[in-house]
Simulated scan of single mutants.
Amino acid sequence: MKTRIIQGGLLALGLAALPAISQDEPASDALSQRASVDGRIQASDGKAIYEQVCQGCHMPEGRGANGAGNYPALAANPKAASAPYLAVTILKGRRNMPAFGSDRNQELFVAQSWMDDEQVAAVVNYLRTNLGNNYPDPISAADVAALRDPTGDRR
């Protein structure tokens, strides 16, 4: 019985991160808006990336959540003052948060989604200027690229 509860919880957690599917939209179209076959996130706008990738755990208003895990609040978060901190967190993950900086299939029970430097910069800039944060100095895609593994390995 415990196995079913755990499996159902993982399924529910995984589905929470997917975009809502309207009655007028075929399921395959809605799912393809999130990631391509190779796992690359499709959105390029910071708000859209947040809505499709981040808000499943950090909640729509960025307030975070506690329950099946601890998802820190991004709203009015003083750590958002550091664009590199947010970028490295997105690229490499932190604690139980997955890394979105790799284009390799990580050895998880599902294929890993990933973002390029422009997408990471876009979502960091969105987080720093929305959700109660007011840090207007942007991070660039070049800045994000410099934060990746210095060997150039996108792992």
Rank of each mutant, 00 (worst) to 15 (best):
K2A: 04
K2H: 02
G9H: 07
L10S: 11
L11M: 09
L13C: 03
L13S: 05
L15V: 02
A17F: 11
L18Q: 13
A20R: 14
Q23M: 09
D24T: 12
E25L: 15
S28E: 15
A30V: 15
A30D: 07
A30Q: 10
L31G: 06
Q33I: 04
Q33A: 12
R34L: 15
R34M: 09
A35D: 11
V37K: 11
V37E: 09
D38K: 12
D38L: 08
R40P: 00
R40G: 02
A43R: 07
S44E: 14
S44I: 07
D45H: 01
K47T: 06
A48C: 04
I49S: 00
I49Y: 00
I49D: 00
Q55W: 00
G56W: 08
M59P: 02
M59V: 10
P60N: 04
P60E: 03
R63A: 14
A65W: 01
N66P: 01
A68E: 06
A68Q: 05
A68C: 00
G69C: 05
G69F: 04
Y71V: 03
Y71C: 05
P72E: 04
A73D: 07
L74G: 01
N77Y: 03
N77H: 04
P78L: 07
K79P: 01
K79E: 14
K79L: 12
S82E: 00
P84V: 09
P84R: 13
A87P: 03
V88M: 11
V88E: 14
V88T: 12
T89Y: 14
L91G: 01
K92I: 01
R94M: 13
M97G: 04
M97L: 05
P98Q: 03
P98L: 07
F100D: 01
F100H: 06
S102G: 14
S102A: 10
R104N: 05
R104F: 12
N105T: 13
N105K: 14
Q106W: 10
E107P: 08
E107Q: 10
Q112R: 11
S113T: 11
W114S: 09
D116V: 05
E118C: 07
E118W: 08
V123M: 03
V124R: 01
V124K: 00
N125Y: 07
N125A: 13
L127Y: 08
T129L: 06
T129C: 08
N130M: 09
N130R: 03
L131G: 02
L131H: 04
G132V: 02
G132N: 09
G132M: 02
G132R: 06
N133A: 10
N134H: 12
Y135C: 14
P136H: 09
P138Q: 12
I139P: 04
A142L: 04
A145Q: 15
A146V: 07
A146S: 14
D149T: 13
D149A: 13
P150F: 13
T151R: 10
R154Q: 10
R155N: 14
